[in-house]
Amino acid sequence: MGCFCSKGVKRTPGYEEPTVLAAETPFTVSEVEALYELFKKLSSSIIDDGLIHKEEFNLALFRNRNKRNLFADRIFDLFDVKRNGVIEFGEFVRSLGVFHPNAPIEDKIAFAFRLYDLRNTGSIEQEELKEMVLALLHESDLVLSEDVIETIVDKTFSQADAKGDGKIDQEEWKEFVSKNPSLIRNMTLPYLKDITLAFPSFVLRSEVED
């Protein structure tokens, strides 16, 4: 049965068919359609062009479009697969798919690695780890002395850098996460399982059966 509602609906420039995205991600077609509702909201919050700009991303994350945050920047850059400065709908869904509770754990581990490999060198270096700790402290009320920061970074590095070559590669990262599974807890958003409840309007009009 066709749907009279979706005919003539204006789609955003990077729009991709929910059936295609559902086939490539852990989302059902209904969930992709619900994500489109969320995407439309986020991508029109400042500039109504159907693309998520960094300011819109920051506004949604922090309620502040001008807030700068190293980790939010990294997330944005990883979502922006085409590297054109904006997040399109397909990029949004595929990237969020990694955060789905049913996504393969290997994908979550790999995504976290890319997130922390700040300079995209294929490994996490000690300087990068320290830079991230400092960025975290900068955004929180936590105050630690330089000595304590060094101790935390050194200790973590000695545990994760099994080969002792001064950098954490993907293999070492995988091993480290398997011993410390809480490290990728933030790579799962339980909310994604309820996305159709949060954004039901389009789902009710969906033309495709899951």
Binding site: F71, A72, I75, Y116, E139, I152, T156, L183, L189, Y191
Partner: peptide, 26 residues
């Protein structure tokens, strides 16, 4: 937990910038 005993990655993972659940708040 005293911060000095924390794993640096564990500390980092608490960043608000990594908490994407905020995207879904209405």
């Amino acid at each position: 937990v005293a911060p000095v005993t924390m794993n640096a990655f564990e500390l980092i993972s608490t960043s608000q910038g990594l908490n994407l659940s905020s995207l879904f708040e209405k």
